[in-house]
Structure formats: structure tokens, C-alpha cells
């Protein structure tokens, strides 16, 4: 006889989704820091895309506007890279975001110790617990990053319109912006998964006997 326990993928996805849905407000807070960080990242990336597109037109008037908007371009430059300062700020914001996610997920594990212990008493393996947490984080990561990406693009387009006028819609670099958006979503989802790794392992290592504990 094969002594195996099972948890089909479909069921895991359903359980993870249900957990997010029921604790919606809680999940929203966990996701919020991610939304902000991804929005910021996307804003910077798309802002650079727009500036690059403006620069590529070779129009000296637009070039002058770029310089007065604070971009480091010398006359004659044809490409524009993210500045060191930008990179540092983005990096820091992502770092803060990961720490926030880890913190929120650790709290969620602590809150759910009884639930995790009970699942183990009912026959769940360590990896089912990890899978549930990772799936939850992936769903939160994807939705959060998507929302952040939209917010970032809108903000960058809006501020671009204010700085450079309606000209930007003539040269709106769709393809580059799509690539930037994909980057932002991938980074956000990746960060969400990175943040859940340690809390999920901690949850998986929890002993089933924890479910018996009465004191809170």
C-alpha cells in the first residue's frame, strides 16, 4: 500500500485565494508597500523612457526642456541612462519594501500558528504549508505589482505631460514602456516571493503539537 498524502495544485490555489479573500484587509496592507515600491520603480523607468524618447527626437527645444527638468544631458547626447542617484533611491525603496513584506508575513505566520498546526495534525506535509504561503505571496505579488505598475505609468505620463507638454503623446514610446512595465511586475512579484521565503520556512517547521497549545 502506498502511504501517501496529497494536496492537488488546484486545491492549493483555491485555499490560498480563499485565505487572501477572507483576510482581504490584512492582505491589502501587506500588498500596499509592494504597490508603492513598484509604482515608484515603474515611475522612474517610464520617466526615463519618456525622456529618452524626447531626446531621440533631436529637437533642441525639447533637449533644453529636459535639462531644465533636471536630466543630466549634454548637448549632442543621444542616449540617457538612469542616474546613480535614481538607482540608489529605487534600490533603497525596494529594500524597505522587502523588509516590510517579511515583517508582515512573519506576523501572519505567528497569527496563524494554530491553523498551521491543525493542518499538520490533519496530515499536511511541510511542503504543502510552504506551497500555500508561496502561492498567497505570488497572488499578492502579481496583483500588487500590476496595480503599482499602472499607478507608476499614469504618474510618469502625467508628470511628463506637465513638464514637457502634450508633445510627449506624439512620441509616446509604447514598446519601451511595455518592457519597463514587465520589468516592474517581474521585480515586484520576485520581491514578494523573496519576502515570503523565510516566513514560509518558519511556518513549515512549526510542530503539529502547536495546535494543542491553549494559551495565546
Amino acid at each position: 500500500m502506498r502511504r501517501l498524502v496529497a494536496l492537488p495544485m488546484g486545491k492549493s490555489v483555491q485555499m490560498a485565494y480563499q485565505s487572501i479573500k477572507v483576510r482581504f484587509f490584512r492582505s491589502l496592507i501587506t500588498t500596499m508597500s509592494l504597490v508603492l515600491a513598484v509604482a515608484f520603480l515603474c515611475y522612474i523607468l517610464v520617466g526615463n523612457d519618456l525622456a529618452q524618447a524626447l531626446l531621440s527626437t533631436g529637437d533642441p527645444v525639447l533637449g533644453q526642456k529636459l535639462i531644465s527638468a533636471g536630466y543630466d544631458v549634454a548637448p549632442g547626447d543621444t542616449s540617457l541612462a538612469a542616474t546613480a542617484k535614481q538607482r540608489w533611491i529605487v534600490f533603497l525603496s525596494l529594500l524597505v519594501c522587502v523588509v516590510g513584506i517579511i515583517n508582515a508575513q512573519l506576523m501572519s505566520v505567528t497569527e496563524r500558528f494554530r491553523e498551521i498546526g491543525t493542518l499538520k495534525c490533519l496530515g499536511a506535509l511541510d511542503r504543502y504549508i510552504v506551497r500555500l504561503f508561496v502561492l498567497e505571496a505570488a497572488m499578492q505579488g502579481l496583483t500588487g505589482s500590476f496595480a503599482g505598475m499602472l499607478a507608476g505609468i499614469l504618474a510618469a505620463t502625467f508628470s511628463g505631460t506637465i513638464r514637457f507638454g502634450l508633445d510627449i503623446f506624439g512620441i509616446y514610446p509604447f514598446q519601451e514602456i511595455m518592457i519597463s512595465a514587465a520589468w516592474a511586475i517581474a521585480t515586484g512579484t520576485g520581491l514578494s516571493l523573496l519576502g515570503v521565503l523565510y516566513p514560509a520556512l518558519l511556518a513549515a517547521r512549526m510542530q503539529p503539537v502547536e495546535a494543542m497549545r491553549v494559551d495565546q
Partner: peptide
Amino acid sequence: YIFQTFNLIPVM
């Protein structure tokens, strides 16, 4: 298993 604190999964 039956627990003193019932331990039903709250989201289900």
C-alpha cells in the same frame, strides 16, 4: 484530532 480550542480553519 479534536482540540480544546476547536481549531477549525477560520477562512473555510
